[in-house]
Design a protein around this nucleic acid. Structure first.
Lengths: 347, 347
DNA sequence: GCGATCCGTGGGACCGCTCCCACGCGGCAT
DNA sequence: ATGCCGCGTGGGAGCGGTCCCACGGATCGC
């Protein structure tokens, strides 16, 4: 396009400024600014002139200049404890991001990804957030004793959590209906005429784990079955944890005929251990997982599992955050999204 | 901490500015700026005074103001075609992000995540990048005919790709030694006395797929075996593609005794199909996958697979990009990282 | 017909930083 | 003593927007 007289190191061409647009359109800076920001107080002819000038010049406002004066950055941070990216059932991470990104797109908001590796980085993040660097924060995988959310609350930075730390949770958050999912799973097992139903939980300092355990209890009680505490083993969402818990359960209650695991990975560990013990799945023992992750489709037999609408959760988080940013205090809500039992071969 | 006389809606406390620091330290603005940016032309006593003032005030420079004048944003974008996040062996995505984030941390660079959903978003991204919004761009999953990289090249925006579009690739990029990994896999099969070794490729418009296929060919030729084109089936990295390709291969060459698949997911599809056809894995047919993803550990039997150092790739991408940003034109390099065969039960 | 009202507009002030120029001052050569 | 050099330094001039005030002209009511 451009001719040969350009300097070879053309680095960073100067982009047209608002002044340039104003000059070309034959109006003042203020008017151009108004057009860009959609103010109604502009005559039709001025608006047309400005819009044409913008198109001709290929003008795009400078973000830095704008945010210097507006004190808004038009970007939000998604904070993820690095330790969790590995542990969490893998697609979860991608799906949340996909959802958040989709919920943000259209609002012209940037997504900043912040992985927190260790305590020192966690401290640095605190400083970081204290600057006026983001308009809001999304947090994944918050533990019960995590203080970062409190800091955010204190700094009055709009925040939305994925899941809650406890009940009640003062901050806005989105979560799946973990209890409902667990109840559905146990109900399914009962309908399959299983009577001695065990469960392997997640770490009980996480609300998801507690909620799933509570759902398990409720479903049994509703069916008029007394909960046998010996049928409850604590896991940690890992495969190895699932194996260990399963061994323990088999020792305590050898005649169990079903297991509800709080994650697919845990369930896959349980299946391995059951097979090692000579039990057939689902013939002797039925197994249900949670998450409906990729693992569920690839175990042998494929796992019946509770699906949570992860991408939808991400999208909802973004929506809540945008609302909260737009009108502080109006938000601070919680949203619970439905789960769904996906029946495969293991139960 | 603060007393009760504060207004209830304390929103956005005014942070101290550089002027405030200068006043407190009893120096000029210029000196404070020099200290912050590590200029050597500051006397020890001035520096000490400034540093103390900064600490006392809890001063943090305003990013927007700085980048307005420096024309740097201190942030880089990671561009990911949304379609790929689903398709790609899942942990890949997380691992790259983890690596990039780790490579970026310390350099004080922000990571912007940009998922490109469709063509319209792709076009918008072009505009977006034309603004002075990021100092550099990382791109994942580039296809052969992707024009975005060319645009970036044209705009003189430092860019590093994950993988290359073709050979040669003018842009800086990082990739795994796909050919070497494939050769190692085939060699392993040969050492296990397999002689009729088939392969299921990925989509051949992607360099990774081609490189793995080439590695397969080379390993056979090195062993003095003529490549039988009927033993090559084209897949698409999906499970269903793997099944279809496997069916086709069994039809063409019923007596094959090994399969090298270009991804774990493909391999898992192949295993399912082999079992459906009554073949035992690995007894009758050995199978090797690629990626060493989570899927590999959970199939039955667990897959022997070629591991690529994904996180390391992300880290390296970040490093190359930072170098390129620091001194344009010096970079533009390519880095190839080694792969490694992980032997499990399937071969 | 005249003042009050309103609408659209131009442009100064400012956001918080970096860049750079000019200046003061001490040390050294002359 | 005089000049020169160079090191530290202060502060003015922007960077490219938004905000808001003041102003001109058309409209309105009486």
């Amino acid at each position: 396009m451009s001719s040969a007289t350009q300097p070879p190191e053309a680095a960073h061409v100067r982009r047209p400024t608002l002044d340039a647009v104003a000059a070309r359109a034959g109006v003042g800076r203020g008017t151009v600014s108004r057009v860009i920001n959609g103010s109604p107080k502009v005559s039709a002819r001025s608006r047309a002139a400005v819009e044409q000038a913008i198109a001709e010049l290929g003008y795009v406002p400078n973000r830095a200049a704008r945010s210097l004066v507006t004190r808004r950055t038009d970007s939000v941070a998604l904070v993820v404890p690095e330790s969790e990216t590995r542990l969490f059932s893998e697609p979860y991470f991608s799906a949340i991001i996909r959802g958040v990104s989709s919920g943000l797109s259209g609002a012209g908001m940037q997504l900043l990804l912040v992985l927190v590796r260790d305590e020192s980085e966690r401290a640095r993040l605190a400083t970081y957030l204290t600057e006026q660097r983001v308009d809001g924060v999304l947090m994944m995988a918050v533990h019960r004793d995590d203080t970062l959310p409190d800091l955010l609350d204190e700094l009055a930075i709009p925040t939305v959590l994925a899941g809650r730390r406890g009940d009640p949770e003062p901050l806005g958050h989105v979560r799946a209906d973990n209890g409902g999912g667990a109840r559905a799973a146990v109900r399914h097992l009962l309908e399959g005429n299983r009577r001695t139903i065990a469960t392997i939980t997640g770490p009980l300092d996480m609300d998801v784990a507690r909620a799933r355990l509570d759902g398990y209890r409720e479903a049994l009680q509703t069916a008029g079955i007394t909960v046998d505490e010996e049928l409850i083993a604590v896991g940690d969402f890992t495969e190895e944890g699932g194996r260990a818990a399963m061994r323990e359960l088999l020792r305590r209650r050898p005649r169990l005929d079903a297991v509800f695991a709080a994650s697919d990975v845990t369930a896959s560990g349980a299946v391995l251990e059951l097979r090692a013990a000579g039990r057939r799945v689902p013939d002797d023992v039925a197994v249900i997982g949670f998450d409906d992750s990729i693992v569920a489709r690839h175990t042998d037999p494929p796992l019946t599992s509770v699906r949570q609408p992860i991408e939808e959760m991400g999208r909802t988080m973004a929506r809540l955050l945008l609302e909260e940013i737009a009108q502080r205090g109006k938000g601070h809500r919680e949203v619970v999204l439905p789960t769904e039992l996906v029946v495969r071969k293991s139960a």
